[in-house]
């Protein structure tokens, strides 16, 4: 059982990496009514047969379709999960969490996705929004945010980490999470 939303996002996003996706987009929106999480990938998708098995809570890690964590989380927080998938086209998952469920360390999850993106060549974009504030990071545009200066690998990593951490904390600052 994953204990917060940030770990749940990572668990679901890992499925997208495993699905052979080349593009993964994640949206996280915080409202008074709770947190909406959406993820879209262009991976191999889920067949109808597999879809039924997911609903029966059978774990199939090889297919990148292990949604048990999400379903368990849902039961606990009283939200809803929607999965739309087309074999060979991709998968869309949306989940809304009722207020009171902890967000966890979103910045750490974003860094993890960026690190995985770097090694796998998968493009990851992450969009976070709360009221009028928003933050977007796209793995293909990281060179733009680290500027034209010649940074060492370590300095570049530290810069991106700082950028993500300050961006995320600015978006979710007033929510008391």
């Amino acid at each position: 059982m994953l204990c917060d939303i940030s770990l749940c996002i990572l668990d679901i996003a890992i499925n997208s990496f495993k699905s052979g996706a080349k593009n993964i987009s994640i949206f996280l929106t915080q409202k008074d009514s709770g947190v909406l999480f959406e993820i879209k990938d262009d991976g191999r998708g889920i067949s109808d047969e597999m879809f039924k098995r997911i609903h029966n809570n059978i774990k199939e890690p090889e297919t990148g379709a292990s949604f048990n964590g999400l379903k368990g989380l849902y039961k606990a927080c009283g939200g809803r999960v929607k999965i739309i998938s087309d074999e060979g086209v991709g998968t869309f998952v949306s989940a809304d969490f009722k207020p009171g469920f902890t967000l966890g360390d979103i910045a750490e999850t974003v860094m993890c996705l960026i690190n995985l993106s770097r090694q796998s060549g998968v493009r990851v974009s992450f969009f976070a929004k709360c009221k009028e504030k928003s933050f977007l990071i796209d793995s293909e545009r990281l060179s733009e945010i680290s500027g034209c200066e010649k940074l060492s690998e370590g300095e570049r990593y530290a810069f991106i980490k700082q950028y993500v951490s300050s961006g995320i904390s600015e978006v979710f600052v007033k929510t008391g999470i």
Partner: peptide, 28 residues
């Protein structure tokens, strides 16, 4: 290992630490 069991136990922080130190040491 980033299965649900790994993620629940702290694999995210471990993966980030590996990536950070590898970058820091300039051996990417």
């Amino acid at each position: 290992s980033m299965g649900t069991c790994g993620i629940a136990s702290g694999a995210r922080e471990v993966l980030n630490a590996f990536a950070e130190v590898v970058a820091e040491k300039g051996i990417t």
